[in-house]
């Protein structure tokens, strides 16, 4: 049994956007804080720390989940994907480019989480319709855009392949 004592740091091994990472963390360290403060992956943002806003959404073994409701210790052996891993060597990926084209972001704070949710949906359900896209997006709060550009961006990308 892996038993990590409070107040002490323990090694956690996982991959971050395909790169192997080995770092120490206390049991109570939130994954969101681990990514940002210990790994310098600032692209994942923290908006509420109670699972309601979706800003911190990352993919763990492919699934879009809230990083504020996970502890660093829980991602041992897992594959973490964050917004920093989305762009291709040639530039923005299709979803990112569509977000720019359709003005799907203003302040951009909620955007990384939204991209991670949509990236899972696109990988698993590339033909998802608008109702399904909206259902997935409903787990994110955006205070700038009124969501219009985000939905348009998704519609531009889904159902194309």
């Amino acid at each position: 049994m892996r038993y990590l004592e409070a107040g002490k740091r323990h090694t956690v091994r996982f991959t971050l956007n395909g790169r192997a990472v080995e770092r120490e963390a206390e049991p109570r360290l939130l994954l969101s804080d681990f990514l940002r403060q210990h790994l310098g992956a600032f692209g994942t943002h923290v908006g509420c720390e109670h699972g309601s806003c979706g800003a911190c959404t990352v993919r763990v073994d492919g699934k879009a989940v809230r990083a504020c409701l996970l502890y660093a210790a829980q991602v041992e052996g897992k594959a973490i994907e964050t917004v920093e891993g989305l762009a291709t060597p040639d530039g923005l990926n299709a979803l990112q480019a569509a977000m720019q084209k359709h003005h799907g972001l203003q302040c951009g704070f909620c955007t990384p989480g939204i991209l991670m949710s949509l990236s899972q949906l696109h990988a698993e359900e590339p033909d998802a319709d608008e109702a399904r896209i909206r259902d997935v997006l409903s787990g994110h709060i955006c205070r700038c855009t009124g969501y219009h550009g985000i939905v348009q961006a998704a519609l531009d990308v889904f159902g194309k392949d």
């Binding site: 892996r2 990590l4 206390e26 049991p27 829980q74």
Partner: peptide
Amino acid sequence: MKPAAFDYACPDNLDEALALL
């Protein structure tokens, strides 16, 4: 908004979890 300190246990099987409980 940060959790208080706790021990984190990741049992390998149900018996370990029950023993800890």
